[in-house]
Structure formats: C-alpha cells, structure tokens
Write a protein that binds this DNA or RNA. Structure first.
Length: 238
RNA sequence: ACAGUUCAUUA
C-alpha cells in the first residue's frame, strides 16, 4: 500500500511476483491494494483489466471493497457512466456492491451535473434493500445546492431527519458553504448555531467556510473574529 | 488468529 501511494505500483507488482513464486497466498486485500495503486497512478485501463481478469477467472473472491475501489477509481478518472453501468452489472452477482459504491456513483453524477440521475438511484435504494447513510444525504445535498435547487434540498433534509440520519460536520459544512455563496449570512449563522446545539464539532473547514462567507460580503471584521477564535479552540488555521 | 485495502465538505 505504501508503494502504491508513492506511485510505485510497478515495484509493488514486482514484489507481488516474487511472493507468488514462493507459493505464498495473495488474498483479496492484496489485490484491492494493487488495483487502487493502479488507479492512483492513472493507469485506469490496467486497473480495469486486472479487475475483470480476477472477476472472470475467479482467481480470487472479490468483495465489496474491491467493487468500491474500482467504482471510485472509474468515477475519479471521469468515467462516471461506466461506473454506473458496472454497478448495475455487479448488482446481479453473488456479492453485491454496498452503499458506499452507490454513494460514490451518486456523488460523481452530481459533480458531472447529472443530479437527476443521482436522485434516480437514490429513489431506488430501498427496493434494493439498502439504506442511505449520512454520506448519501450529504453528497446529494451538495449536488442540489450547487445547482440552486433549494426546495429539493430542503425536502431532502427533512427526509434525512425523518430517517433519523444525524447530520455530521460534512453535512453542516456543505450547507454553510451553500449559504455563504448565496450571501445568506443569517442562514449561515443559524446553521452554525444548530451545529453547536447538536454537538457536531466544527472543524477547520467549517471555520474556513465561515471566513470565506464573511469575506465575500466584505465583512472583514467578522471574518477576523472567526479567525481569531480558531486558535483559541485548539484548531490550527491552514 | 489478529492486522493490512474502501465513499462525501471549504479555500
């Protein structure tokens, strides 16, 4: 894994070769790590090839982590639709993709301006026996806010509460950022207050977002106050 | 045996 992060997938494969020669087993985690490494180096076609080979020849029992790595790799490489197709194929297999794989595709669809397609997948989660989690809601909220679909965003927030999914720091950061960009400082402050009431810890990104919001409105004094408060809270400005 | 691989937020 370290070698892959260092962009040395080639070296990782060399080691893998020698392990193989000595007759040692290679398990699913090894393969997952290697596939991830290929994606990190931008070797998308190779990653896909390895994955398909493992899948077709049953060289190793792949798991939901494998699926997630491949789906995520494809999405991040700009092949969102291919990832969505793969998801549909994998659904038919014995081992099903988990909610994280669906989240990845929905998030990527939103970022590719296909929010409706993401919502479409979202609406079918239940019938596939899956439950949306906080990442699902946060990603979709982000997508809706990015395209100023406020009504639907509000509706989704209510749905989230109805399903007893608690918003976390990411969720609030997304909402506050959306309000900031709209210049709705009052709403930003309200969101921040609710965040504190629910005991959701703001992080550096929360404060950066607040500062950005005040700066955008030319309220440098307030921005400064937030900045000063960060240090006192034991967070380090970045 | 245990461990090791996996999703979303600001600039």
């Amino acid at each position: 894994y370290c070698l892959c992060l260092l962009n040395r997938v080639d070296f990782a494969f060399a080691i893998f070769g020698s392990i193989f020669k000595r007759g040692r087993g290679l398990d699913v985690v090894t393969f997952n790590t290697l596939i991830k490494g290929l994606f990190l180096e931008g070797k998308v076609a190779e990653a896909e090839k390895l994955f398909m080979k493992l899948l077709r020849h049953k060289i190793c029992v792949l798991d939901e982590v494998t699926y997630l790595i491949v789906i995520n790799g494809l999405c991040k490489a700009g092949h969102t639709l291919k990832a969505r197709d793969l998801l549909v194929i994998l659904e038919k297999g014995r081992c099903k993709p988990n909610i994280k794989a669906y989240n990845t595709v929905m998030d990527s669809l939103c970022k590719d301006r296909m929010v409706d397609d993401a919502l479409q997948i979202f609406s079918k989660l239940a019938e596939k026996g899956m439950s949306a989690n906080v990442v699902t809601y946060s990603s979709l909220l982000h997508g809706l806010c990015n395209f100023c679909r406020w009504k639907e965003a509000k509706y989704l927030l209510n749905d989230m509460v109805a399903h007893k999914i608690s918003p976390n720091t990411f969720t609030f950061n997304i909402l506050m950022d959306a309000y900031c960009k709209e210049g709705l400082l009052k709403d930003v402050e309200d969101a921040f207050m609710i965040m504190r009431q629910l005991n959701v810890q703001p992080d550096v990104i929360s404060y950066n977002t607040l500062i950005d919001g005040y700066c955008l409105q030319g309220q440098m004094d307030k921005a400064r106050k937030v900045f000063d408060s960060i240090v006192g809270l034991g967070l380090k400005p970045d």
